Deep mutational scan, measured.
Amino acid sequence: FDIYVVTADYLPLGAEQDAITLREGQYVEVLDAAHPLRWLVRTKPTKSSPSRQGWVSPAYLDRRL
């Protein structure tokens, strides 16, 4: 999967189903980028939180090589 970094805090609107909150600087794996406005991502697990999966706007993501 492609690795992206979150460029700004992402707080989903209440109406968005299956969306997750992301923090600036967080790394995520993009699982599904087929839709231009919503990408399915999975967060990297940390010592304090397990990995999470949900939909985010790709405008908040920047690809890492």
Score class of each variant (00 low, 15 high):
Pro36Met: 05
Trp39Gly: 00
Asp18His: 08
Asp9Glu: 06
Thr43Val: 09
Ala8Tyr: 07
Glu16Cys: 08
Pro58Leu: 02
Gly14Ile: 13
Ala34Gln: 14
Asp62Phe: 08
Thr7Asn: 12
Pro50His: 06
Ser49Lys: 10
Arg42Ile: 05
Pro58Phe: 02
Arg42Ser: 04
Val5Ala: 04
Gly14Pro: 15
Gly54Asp: 02
Gly54Gln: 04
Leu31Thr: 02
Tyr27Glu: 14
Ala59Leu: 14
Pro36His: 06
Pro12Gly: 08
Thr21Glu: 14
Tyr4Glu: 00
Val30Glu: 00
Pro50Trp: 04
Asp18Met: 07
Glu29Val: 10
Leu65Ile: 14
Leu65Gln: 14
Leu11Arg: 12
Arg63Lys: 15
Pro12Gln: 06
Ser49Ala: 14
Glu29Trp: 15
Leu61Glu: 01
Ser51Asp: 03
Asp32Tyr: 09
Val6Ala: 07
Gln17Ser: 12
Leu31Lys: 02
Ser57Phe: 04
Phe1Glu: 07
Pro50Tyr: 05
Ala59Lys: 12
Pro12Val: 08
Tyr27Gln: 10
Leu61Asn: 01
Ser57Cys: 06
Gln17Gly: 10
Leu65Ala: 13
Asp2Val: 11
Thr7Gln: 05
Val6Thr: 04
Gly25Met: 02
Arg38Leu: 11
Asp9Arg: 05
Gln17Asn: 13
Asp9Ser: 06
Gln17Thr: 13
Ile20Lys: 02
Leu22Asp: 00
Glu29Met: 10
Thr46Asp: 12
Thr7Cys: 06
Val6Tyr: 01
Val41His: 01
Ala34Met: 11
Arg42Leu: 04
Gln17Lys: 14
Asp9Trp: 03
Val5Pro: 01
Ala15Lys: 04
Val5Thr: 05
Asp62His: 11
Leu40His: 04
Arg23Asn: 09
Tyr27Phe: 13
Thr46Lys: 06
Asp62Thr: 14
Pro45Asp: 08
Glu29Leu: 10
Val28Ala: 01
Thr43Gln: 02
Val6Gly: 00
Tyr27Lys: 06
Thr21Cys: 11
Leu13Cys: 10
Arg63Met: 12
Lys44Gln: 14
Gln53Pro: 02
His35Asp: 15
Phe1Val: 09
Leu37Asp: 15
Val30Gln: 01
Pro36Trp: 04
Leu65Arg: 05
Gln26Cys: 05
Glu24Met: 14
Ser57Met: 06
Gln17Val: 14
Trp55Met: 04
Glu29Ser: 05
Lys47His: 12
Glu16Arg: 04
Gln26His: 04
Ala34Asp: 10
Thr43Tyr: 06
Tyr27Leu: 15
Lys47Trp: 11
Ile3Tyr: 10
Leu11Ser: 12
Val5Gln: 08
Arg42Lys: 09
Ser48Glu: 15
Pro45Tyr: 05
Lys44Pro: 11
Val30Met: 02
Ser51Ile: 10
Pro50Arg: 05
Gly25Ala: 02
Gly14Leu: 13
Tyr27Cys: 07
Leu13His: 13
Ala59Phe: 10
Thr46Cys: 07
Val28Phe: 02
Val5Cys: 05
Thr46Leu: 06
Lys44Leu: 15
Leu37Val: 07
Gln26Pro: 00
Trp39Gln: 00
Thr7Tyr: 03
Pro36Glu: 09
Asp9Ala: 07
Gln53Gly: 03
Asp32Lys: 05
Ser49Phe: 11
Phe1Ile: 09
Ser48Trp: 13
Trp39Leu: 01
Gly14Val: 13
Thr7Ala: 06
Ala8Gln: 13
Arg64Leu: 15
Pro50Leu: 07
Leu22Gln: 01
Gly25Asp: 02
Ser51Met: 10
Val5Glu: 05
His35Lys: 05
Leu31Cys: 02
Trp55Ile: 03
Pro58Trp: 03
Phe1Arg: 10
Pro36Ser: 07
Leu11Lys: 12
Val56Asp: 00
Asp18Pro: 06
Gly54Phe: 10
Ile3Val: 12
Arg63Ala: 05
Arg64Val: 15
Asp18Ser: 08
Ser57Gln: 05
Ser48Lys: 09
Asp2His: 11
Thr43Pro: 02
Lys44Ser: 09
Lys47Gln: 11
Leu22Pro: 00
